Simulated scan of single mutants.
Amino acid sequence: MAIALSEASWDELWEESWERAYCADSMDECDQIIEYPQQLGQGYKRNIELRNGIILTLHNYRFHDDLTVISTQSEATGEPYRELEFVFNLSSTSRYWQGDYVTSGQHYLVAHGCVGGFYCQELAKQPKLAVDIHLESAVFESILGNSLDILPLDLRQMVESSDRSLMSAFDTITPAMQLALEQILHCPYQGVLKQMYLESKSVELLVLYINQVQSNSRITSKIRLQSDDVDRIHEAKKILIQQIDNPPTLLNLARQVGLNDRKLKQGFRQVFNTTVFGYLHHYRMEKARQLLLEQRSISAIAAAVGYASPTAFNAAFRRKFGTSPKAYQLASRI
């Protein structure tokens, strides 16, 4: 059985869990254990506020059932706020708003803006074990010494943009990252020594992340594609279009066209100037807009373009076009 929650219901459950939070370290009141809502799963999140402005969140839990959380927030409230969330997923499978799957051994960055909802589906197949680094954009810039120009353009835009939530492409956790993550999860210290140790390890992870995206950027700019590679990339695009309602994972797509996943990712961006799932998302939205003009039902259109529910489709369409599917459809009748 799958469970679907609105963002408000999700927040309400977590507020109850926060009321029962307790210290994991008697020498550090900024190290809190928050047990997972029993209705949803077993396990906990551990939040550790560090002195350098970073918050570490250690996830260790298992869901009873697949869980979908949907937000349709479309307007900013309060003061502008920009948080970066570096997610290192050691075990679990999740699906996000563009249909992308993140699996064990992958990491990604989410830049949370003031505007835009989200869609996230957590699968109950595996226990969730992950380390998140949360920090405000200003903190990240200060760690870099205000040298954002060392970042690839797409990453720099994620850090600087504040009007919507953005997500990076998924990449592989390297052996060096894996070691730093294990050291964080098994920190041998308490009190101020723990703070110093985790501060250094969190910055180390950021260094490894930036080094990886810089390397990927250099590789992408230099990749050479043979004519056969280009044909295979175009075939991958055709498969995405044909299977829009249930697209393959990136790894399965690469296997179907006879490329490794890295060449498919880099080559697809080079040929079509977008990521594989960025293209899929754009195609889905354009297809949905066409179907809306044909006055089909919202639920039928959501299913036709591969969304698990009309609510998830509504949130994605609003993010893309700034209006709801229903409002767009009604306007087209005038």
Rank of each mutant, 00 (worst) to 15 (best):
S142W: 01
G267Y: 01
Q295M: 02
K125I: 09
K45F: 11
R46V: 14
L330G: 00
V230N: 03
Q270T: 11
L264G: 07
T275Q: 05
Y209D: 07
T57M: 13
N146R: 08
R333N: 09
K125N: 12
S324Q: 05
I298Q: 12
Q290V: 03
P175L: 03
E35N: 13
T103H: 07
M1T: 11
L291P: 01
E29P: 06
E35W: 06
K238Q: 14
M158Y: 06
G191A: 09
R319V: 00
Q266W: 05
T72V: 15
R224D: 04
L206Y: 00
R284N: 07
A300Y: 07
K326N: 08
T274H: 05
S92H: 08
R46T: 15
P80N: 10
A111D: 04
T323Y: 10
S297V: 00
Y22L: 04
T323L: 14
L58N: 09
D149R: 12
C30T: 10
V131M: 07
I334L: 12
W14A: 07
E35D: 15
F277G: 01
D261Y: 11
P188I: 00
L292P: 05
E19R: 12
A236T: 13
E160A: 11
L330N: 10
A169I: 05
G99Q: 02
E79Y: 13
P152W: 03
L129T: 09
S92D: 02
A124Y: 03
W10M: 11
D100N: 06
P310F: 13
I173W: 00
C120D: 04
T249M: 10
D28Y: 04
Q32N: 14
A176H: 07
A331F: 09
Q256G: 01
A130C: 13
D171G: 07
F277K: 06
Q32P: 06
P152E: 10
G43S: 10
D229C: 03
E79W: 11
I133C: 05
R269F: 07
R262K: 09
D171N: 08
S215P: 05
A138W: 08
K263D: 04
M167P: 02
Y96H: 06
